[in-house]
Every structure is written in structure tokens, then in C-alpha cells.
Simulated scan of single mutants.
Amino acid sequence: MSIQMIVHQALQDGYLTPTMEAEVGRICESASELSLEEYTALDQLMAALLAGQVVAMPHKQFINVMEELVVTEVITQVSELDDEQSKALDIADVAAYALNRLPPLYATSEEGAHYQRERAQNELHALIHKQSQEGIKRFLDRPQLPDRNPLDLPVRKDLLEQMNELLKTYAPD
């Protein structure tokens, strides 16, 4: 999708979604030089944003509590493995496997998140444990794919660095 098409869509809808914003950013970063039409469209978008004709949607107005619960469970289970196995694991892959097999638990407030955490502890703990365990087993059994393109393109990190980043993401303060 071009910048002009994105701006047209944003003006028509009155909203600039995070996906649209990311696509504009990707185009701007990948292009060595923008055309006059692209600059004009960006100026038009900026004016519409400043005038309130287009509203930029926040990136996240909700959380999936299940994500933090699964990441915590995966980290707990990985820490119980021997060093050689745990270094080979990608916590994000294991968590994604488990999350694809568990119900989402979305919340839009701290109270809602607290409710979802308690509900999961009472009703879903065994299922979270089982799916995380299955994710680890599947990850260890599959062949490594050398030319994978992960979403976040990080430099390869050891397990402790991955866990530290995940904990910082999910642990407030």
C-alpha cells in the first residue's frame, strides 16, 4: 500500500491505525528518497492529525493477561531444564505455541486484569502448564530453521537475557 493510499484511507475513516502508521514508517525508512506526491500526502496527513480530522489510534488500549501468565509459566519450566536444553529454547516460540492453544484473557483496566489473572489461576492453571510443557517439547523435537526471520530481528541472546527482557516487559516497575 502506498503512502497516498494510506493517507486517503485515514482521511476517509477519520482514524490512523497502528498498522497504517507502521506501514508509512516502513515505506519512509526503506525509500532512499520520497516523491513529491508522498511528501504532499504526509503533509496532508500531518495537517489532518493536527486539526483533529484524523485521530491516531493508540497502539494498545488493552492487554491479553494470558500472555504474561504463559511467559511466566514457560520461564518457570525452562528454568527447570538442564543448561544445554534451555539455551536451545526460544521462549517467544514456546510461548506463541502455548498461546495459540489457550483462550485469550483481554482486559482494559487494572481491575479487569486482576480479575482475569485470578480467573486464570483458578480455572486455567493446569491447562497453561500443559500447553507450555507441550510447547517446550515441540520446540526441542523440531529441527532448527537457519533462515527464519523473527519479528523482532534481535541479535541472538542467551536465555538469561531473553528472560530478563520478558520480565521487564511484563513486570511493572
Rank of each mutant, 00 (worst) to 15 (best):
T76N: 12
S132P: 11
E73Q: 15
H8Y: 11
A22L: 04
G112Q: 01
K87Q: 15
Q9G: 01
L105F: 01
I27C: 04
A107F: 07
E29A: 08
R119A: 07
M66K: 05
F62N: 06
A31D: 09
K130F: 10
Q61K: 10
D173G: 09
M163E: 04
Q44K: 06
T72M: 10
L145Q: 15
I91F: 08
A47W: 03
L16G: 01
Q144E: 06
V55W: 05
H114W: 02
A92N: 02
T19C: 02
K130I: 09
P154G: 02
D83N: 10
E165M: 11
T72L: 14
K168C: 02
N64C: 08
V70E: 10
A47E: 07
E165R: 04
A107L: 02
P150V: 03
V24D: 02
S32H: 12
K157R: 13
V78Q: 05
H114F: 06
N100E: 01
V24N: 01
A47N: 05
Y106P: 04
E80S: 14
N122H: 07
L42G: 03
E84C: 04
E33N: 07
P103N: 06
L160H: 07
V7T: 06
A96T: 10
H114K: 00
V78L: 06
V54Q: 11
A51M: 13
H125A: 12
L153R: 11
Q121R: 14
S109W: 00
M66Q: 07
R26D: 14
S109Y: 02
S79K: 13
M57N: 01
M163G: 01
Y106F: 12
Q9E: 04
L36C: 02
R148Q: 13
D43F: 07
A10I: 06
Q12W: 08
Q131E: 13
Y170V: 00
G112V: 03
Y39N: 07
V65M: 02
Q121L: 12
L45A: 01
V94W: 09
R156D: 14
A41D: 05
E68N: 01
H129Q: 14
S79G: 12
Y170L: 00
I3P: 03
E84V: 11
D13Y: 04
A10W: 00
T108L: 07
C28H: 05
V71P: 00
R26G: 09
S32I: 08
R26F: 12
D82C: 09
D147F: 12
A171K: 00
L11D: 00
P103G: 05
R148W: 15
A171G: 02
R156K: 10
S32C: 11
Q44E: 11
T108A: 13
A98L: 09
L166H: 04
K137E: 14
D90H: 12
A22Y: 05
L89F: 02
V71D: 00
D152I: 15
G52I: 07
S109E: 03
R138M: 14
E73L: 07
L160T: 08
Q77S: 08
